[in-house]
């Protein structure tokens, strides 16, 4: 099916471009928007793999809700451009080398694996594969314990976020009047 292949290469290019944009763009706001594009492209890839429910969840939960949270936080903390690292920094040259090493290693693992099914389109599956009904039945029967554990984990994370981000009054000196210049500019003024 040439249509499937064309769609795969278009969305794969989009996903890779979005991922590169997240890493390379300097403004955090553009990074978030780039990740949204990446997630939508990835949802199309999920559809190609017949994971319809996961594709919908990816768009609704990830690209919709989680990214809105990111945009709010970027707007709240100002979203300044990130300062360049010093050129002699070891880390900035080590990062791409490390990534290239993992890529080579993963490629060797993929080539060297004995899985013959990798070069096929996958097992024959029925039309209902990955539909919400099938996923829901699995979640509530075979995978009930992981499902409940995940829901408790979400609850704990929500409570933890509230505890982390609340204003701590009485624990430290009363903070100076708020709504001044952000911390980074104040440091520069003092210097």
């Amino acid at each position: 099916m040439w249509f499937e292949q064309v769609l795969f290469f278009i969305t794969a290019t989009g996903a890779l471009a979005g991922a590169l944009g997240v890493v390379l763009l300097r403004n955090p706001f553009y990074c978030v928007l780039s990740l949204v594009a990446h997630l939508v492209a990835l949802a199309v890839l999920f559809l190609l793999l017949q994971a319809a429910f996961l594709a919908a969840a990816q768009v609704v939960v990830y690209a919709g809700a989680v990214m809105v949270l990111y945009v709010f936080v970027v707007a709240y903390i100002g979203g300044q451009d990130e300062a360049m690292r010093a050129d002699d920094s070891l880390v900035s040259s080590f990062g791409p080398l490390f990534a290239a090493a993992i890529a080579v290693e993963l490629s060797f693992a993929l080539i060297g694996t004995g899985l013959e099914a990798l070069d096929t389109r996958g097992a024959e599956v029925g039309p209902g594969f990955g539909s919400p009904g099938q996923i829901g039945a699995l979640l509530l029967r075979r995978f009930l314990v992981p499902f409940e554990a995940a829901s408790y984990l979400l609850l704990v994370a929500a409570v933890g976020a509230v505890v982390l981000a609340r204003r701590r009054r009485g624990l430290e000196e009363p903070p100076p009047p708020r709504r001044e210049a952000p911390a980074r500019e104040r440091l520069e003024v003092q210097a």
Partner: peptide, 9 residues
């Protein structure tokens, strides 16, 4: 790999 490079850089 792109994500791993970003985490480091």
């Amino acid at each position: 790999c792109i994500g791993a490079a970003g985490v480091i850089v």
